[in-house]
Design a protein around this nucleic acid. Structure first.
Lengths: 342, 342
DNA sequence: AGAAAATTTGACATCGTTGTCTGGTAAAAA
DNA sequence: TTTTTACCAGACAACGATGTCAAATTTTCT
């Protein structure tokens, strides 16, 4: 038999409500009574039933992590890990909800899941976090949410991100410092907030170094391995070949690497390659890819902390809930000075 | 406002209980009525409140997926995806619990999480599923659990797996059919149940084909990329070089691929490489790796189905809860006939 | 056709907790 | 001392579903 609050109440000679007050550390309980009740709680090993509690109070101690499903990448995995660990520390639980935003009715899917579980908060990752109407609906529901790397910041909600533009700038700069003059760039999906930022950082670094950007050496891409192969192949077969290519994510960088292998080019001797994100695959590839590390787990953990903060609910726009974490350049074997021939 | 069962009942002109029956697929509801109610459920987008359900039925509608944490590989991701989707279909929810079984107190961590959430069942993946004392404790708690790829089957619990030995046999056989005679093999961690099975399949295929196995061409490994590099390098630098290497998982196969690149060998011209698991990275690598596909998502889904089956609780040993799913050989560009020189 | 059995439905209590409201007692202010 | 205020504690009704049981209906059997 499980011990209920009534057992405790009877044993302590008080009402159930009073026990509830003690458990939840509410005000207005005489300290002596408080202690007496606590003693009984300890003695009986009473633990409140989480379901009853949620049902009654309409708080769930549950946070939701919403991910765009097809992109179930190591990015998503890292996010989940970070959020999970932080929830554990804070005595919350995490529900992971994959979403397919290209399918009809994903919003309803999300909403129903929110109210079935009465989530206390939601963590939104790209590209879900950029969906305006969705944000409006969450606000209408008064469900606190935090956006991760949404691109633009808004006054009305917490954000966790890194300075993508500066990161791209730094990476480009480091290629320039290695001696590269003709550096190619592969863009991501236009709808993704990171795309223009990373491009801007690249362009800015080239401009400041007084280097010209060859139009054909800035190629479109869509963050997939395949698009990296295509863009890389086109660029490498072209009339003038860049000595380095900076892809705006790791998967595409791996695509470039594959394209180079196909064309008989050796990395990094004939071509330097840099990526972005520091996914596990960047490490596992051969050669390992030089990339920008985003502290994804910490970002997720920060999002959890923000959501749990009792102040957040009433002041989601407060600047202290706009957190920018730091990134790091990870140099691996896919980059080197250009061949002496140049 | 959230939609409750009463709203549906009112709209459909039936009692709340009837709606409840429909939702839970209980018997004794006229098909026409069933459909009518379902239509209203759809129309209103009703989803039962998980807490109220739990409170009332003393079931939690929550399943736990326990994963060995450091191995948060694409294996784990696939498992999670499969389990999640199936839970959604069946109106259950999933809680993912990463565990570090090398750390002290992981068992307690697991137990507290089980009784805080009052899980209805647990899915155990390797290597957690092989921990005898843990199984005993779960049984003591009367918590149904299903083991995924545990190696040996037990009378007392459900199992989902594939025939790893035959899969390894088939893969080896297909290399032999390509014309390879000297095929190397890289083993996994000994504690992992898959290791001896995959080895056995390989040895058996070699034996039946009348091929001899060179002792140095069966190397130890630990399922990591790095161990694949090391084993591969050792084998390829040795006096006689195999024309094909079968690594017992994809990460190690990628390691072999990297080692080959390092030594200036071209895959598959100079060396064929095969892996096992069909993880996302096997597809993304260059060249893409030939491998054995485990239907991991389906395996997880099957585990969910077993746990939810009302019969399972009382007859966990029933043969119908021992499910073997089918695998598939995925041929990609890392394998080809050996160079003509041989 | 009439009785028995099976099927289909609903009323109502219940799960364990917290929110609201009300009454009483002790401390502070007049 | 009397009035006001603060503080404490309990009764009772939610929260939203399911379990139980009994009534109404249909089917099946003599």
């Amino acid at each position: 038999m499980t011990i209920t609050i009534k057992d405790v109440a009877a044993q302590a000679g008080v009402s159930a409500k009073t026990v509830s007050r003690v458990i939840n550390q509410e005000a207005h309980v005489r300290p002596e009574l408080r202690d007496a009740v606590m003693k009984v709680v300890e003695a009986l090993g009473y633990r409140p039933n989480a379901f009853a509690r949620s049902l009654s109070s309409s708080r769930s101690y549950l946070l939701g992590l919403f991910l765009h499903d097809p992109a179930w990448s190591s990015y998503a995995v890292a996010m989940q890990r970070g959020a999970l660990m932080q929830c554990r520390k804070r005595n919350y639980h995490l529900v992971v909800e994959p979403l397919d935003i290209s399918s009809e009715g994903w919003e309803r899917q999300m909403m129903t899941s929110i109210d079935a579980l009465r989530l206390d908060g939601a963590i939104l990752t790209p590209p879900v976090c950029r969906h305006g109407p969705l944000l409006d609906r969450l606000e209408a529901l008064k469900l606190p949410y935090v956006r991760i790397s949404p691109g633009e910041r808004l006054e009305r909600s917490g954000v966790v991100d890194i300075d993508e533009e500066r990161a791209a700038y730094d990476m480009t700069r480091s290629l320039i410092d290695l001696g590269h003059r003709d550096i190619g760039f592969i863009k991501g999906i236009p709808s993704h907030a990171a795309t223009p930022k990373r491009l801007k950082g690249y362009l800015e670094a080239m401009r400041r170094a007084g280097l010209s950007v060859i139009p054909d050496h800035v190629a479109p891409g869509d963050f997939t391995f395949r698009s990296g192969i295509e863009a890389g192949e086109a660029m490498l077969r072209g009339p003038s070949r860049p000595t380095a290519i900076f892809a705006s994510n790791d998967d595409m960088a791996l695509g470039v690497s594959a394209a180079a292998a196909k064309l008989g080019l050796t990395v990094p001797t004939d071509l330097s390659i840099a990526g972005f994100d520091d996914t596990a695959t960047a490490r596992i590839a051969w050669p390992p890819i030089t990339t920008v590390r985003q502290p994804m787990e910490e970002m997720a953990a920060a999002a959890v902390d923000i959501l749990i903060d009792p102040v957040y609910r009433n002041a989601p726009g407060d600047p202290r809930f706009q957190r920018e974490l730091s990134y790091a350049l990870i140099t691996r074997e896919s980059t080197a000075p250009p061949a002496a021939s140049s």
